[in-house]
């Protein structure tokens, strides 16, 4: 009986692993940059499935929204503005005498560290302190309460990235040179409130189930990128989107403002603002 229930899962895991390996190979060694980028986006989506299999639904949500969605949009927008150089896949591995031993050493070190990690982990500590955190979802509790400084520093990294990107100035080639179809901007206008609503839902859901600030910020960022790609914010994207986002985020954030420690968390509005702002100054 046990074999019957375990079988499909093992087959699924095996197929997933093979697909992931093939897509990773395509992304890094395949022919054609566009194909590589698309392979990488599919890789991110399948990684989300792998996270589900590893019982990490929070990471699955974040991977699907950030890893595949936002990164994919960034990669595609960069690809559209690149000069196509003579890229014919990977060349013969250069300096293999350097990176093969170095890579094996790092991999071995990782394996040793993984092997020597204390086995019970911190799960019990988190569970015992969960009641004091004000939320039911342990991952949200760790992110916003127990390890809040980590999250704050991570927002610092986001801010640093935004400062670096702003300091570059405008790029020579605009993102959307012409919009052939009038349906695209209309679609962007139509869908953006849905993105806002979805991100609020994810934020609220994060207190008791998989979801939370990261995923909400990513979905909001994806909505901004959609607006940008659909040409809704053509002309002066950074300024327009900035105003729109401040308005939306203010609208969303205002009702939740008083009281609750989760909603009042500083990292939250900054995170939701940081990603769209960053993505639009990339354009």
């Amino acid at each position: 009986m046990g074999a019957v229930t375990i079988w499909p899962a093992a087959v699924f895991d095996g197929l997933l692993a093979l697909a992931l390996l093939w897509l990773a190979w395509q992304a890094t060694h395949g022919a054609g940059l566009f194909r590589s980028v698309v392979s990488f986006i599919v890789f991110g989506l399948l990684m989300a499935l792998a996270w589900v299999r590893l019982e990490a639904p929070d990471i699955a949500l974040a991977e699907a929204a950030i890893g595949a969605g936002v990164t994919g949009a960034l990669l595609l927008s960069a690809l559209g503005r690149l000069e196509y150089s003579d890229d014919r896949g990977a060349s013969a591995p250069r300096e293999w005498w350097l990176w093969v031993p170095a890579g094996l050493a790092v991999l071995g070190l990782l394996a040793v560290v993984a092997w020597q990690l204390p086995t019970p982990g911190l799960g019990e500590h988190v569970d015992s302190a969960l009641a004091r955190s004000g939320v039911d979802n342990p991952v949200t509790a760790v992110l916003l309460n127990f390890r809040a400084f980590d999250t704050l520093l991570e927002v610092g990294v986001l801010l640093l990235a935004a400062i670096v990107l702003w300091s570059f100035g405008a790029v020579a080639r605009p993102l959307v040179p012409a919009v052939p179809s009038p349906a695209l901007p209309a679609l962007g206008r139509l869908l953006f409130p849905v993105f806002v609503l979805l991100s609020v839902y994810l934020l609220w859901r994060g207190s008791h189930a998989p979801g939370g600030a990261f995923q909400a910020g990513a979905v909001l960022g994806a909505g901004g990128i959609l607006m940008l790609l659909s040409g809704r914010a053509r002309g002066c994207p950074a300024r327009f989107l900035g105003v729109a986002f401040y308005r939306w985020v203010w609208l969303v954030w205002w009702p939740w403002r008083p009281g609750r420690p989760l909603w009042g968390s500083v990292s939250l509005p900054i995170l939701s603002l940081g990603q769209p702002r960053r993505s639009c100054c990339l354009s």
Binding site: E63, G67, T71, A78, G121, G123, L165
Partner: peptide, 28 residues
């Protein structure tokens, strides 16, 4: 289930996206 590595990975994903964004902006 240990929630701390999950939180660390979430942080790592966001840091990776930041790195990618800066790298792509340089690349363009």
């Amino acid at each position: 289930l240990d929630a701390v590595p999950h939180a660390i990975v979430l942080t790592g994903i966001v840091v990776t996206v930041s790195t990618t964004a800066v790298a792509l902006a340089l690349l363009v």
